[in-house]
Design a binder for these strands. Structure first.
Lengths: 161, 161
DNA sequence: GCTTGACCTTACCATTATGGGAAGCACCAT
DNA sequence: ATGGTGCTTCCCATAATGGTAAGGTCAAGC
């Protein structure tokens, strides 16, 4: 079983198999005299495990931990479950974020005529002076230190509400 | 308005502002004699536009197109709407993927006792021989070309369904 | 034996968007 | 003059993957 066949058998590309080896996710397999990597059924199984974990959205580092749990025959299933549920929460956080984006855009698009006139609430929203999104507070005093500034600054910046 | 202030005013870090300039997303601002970048209110506005687009999940390249539409006073709102809805579909595709992952993991976790015993359906699933996920078809014949292969290959590979 | 094509090897580069740091100059207040 | 903060550029790193190039290998056909 050399790498190309390991790839089709596991669903992990040859490129990625070598990569996983390079980062120590999998052990270096034995080699033929010519230097070809040779994989055992066991190793293919491991690759498939990794593939499945990736498909479920686990990062490579998370896959590494899952592999460790898998190999540890004395693990407690509670540990696996905790780990999995943590990931579920991560996924759902991400889902919520994406849904918020989608919802906002959908609303905006709904109010957009979508004809050949230029007026567009979508662009209008994007161009809002400040949609009070991020609570990005910085520790800075008056912030008025620039010297030979040539810019025209009206009250533009006090407008950030 | 030099870069630090432009950053706080727009919500885009100074690092990113320079980056956006380097990739031509924004025009290079004028400079003081000393080489300091100086931003106009207009440019801050533009940065805020970009920031908002990014917050809504548009990629930088998409933000570039939105900026172009914004600047083009003769755009048709239909174009903007189409663009936005395309993005909404992208978002929802992503959401669906994440939800599929979440659902699967949740189901698995549900059947996991989560005690101190090692038996765990989550790991068992990950270790499944082949969960017939990807339709990864490759154009290859018998695929049995290796020479001095030392691996034990039972029927392991014919097992992939 | 020699050629050919498919396969393997390593090494390097690119991607996306962002952060971090170093070295050095600029500005401003004391 | 000195110090602190901010600016400059340049380089590196991240996560996971794909691509390419240059070269060795293997099996098969002539």
């Amino acid at each position: 079983m050399n790498i190309g066949q390991a790839a089709t058998a596991s669903g992990v590309t040859a490129k990625m198999i070598r990569y996983y080896e390079s980062i120590g996710l999998i052990e270096p397999p034995i080699r033929t005299q010519a230097g070809y990597r040779v994989y055992t059924a066991e190793e293919i199984h491991e690759l498939r495990f990794i593939k499945r974990a990736r498909t479920l959205g686990f990062s490579i580092e998370e896959a590494r931990e899952l592999l460790a749990l898998w190999r540890d025959k004395s693990r407690a299933s509670a540990d696996v479950k905790t780990f999995a549920m943590k990931h579920v929460r991560d996924l759902e956080t991400k889902i919520d974020e994406l849904q918020a984006m989608s919802r906002t855009l959908r609303h905006l698009a709904q109010t957009c005529h979508g004809d050949d006139r230029p007026e567009c609430p979508i662009l209008a929203d994007l161009a809002l002076p400040d949609a009070r999104q991020p609570p990005a507070e910085k520790k800075r005093g008056k912030a008025k230190t620039h010297a030979d500034c040539t810019c025209d600054e009206g009250d533009t910046f006090s407008r950030r509400h």
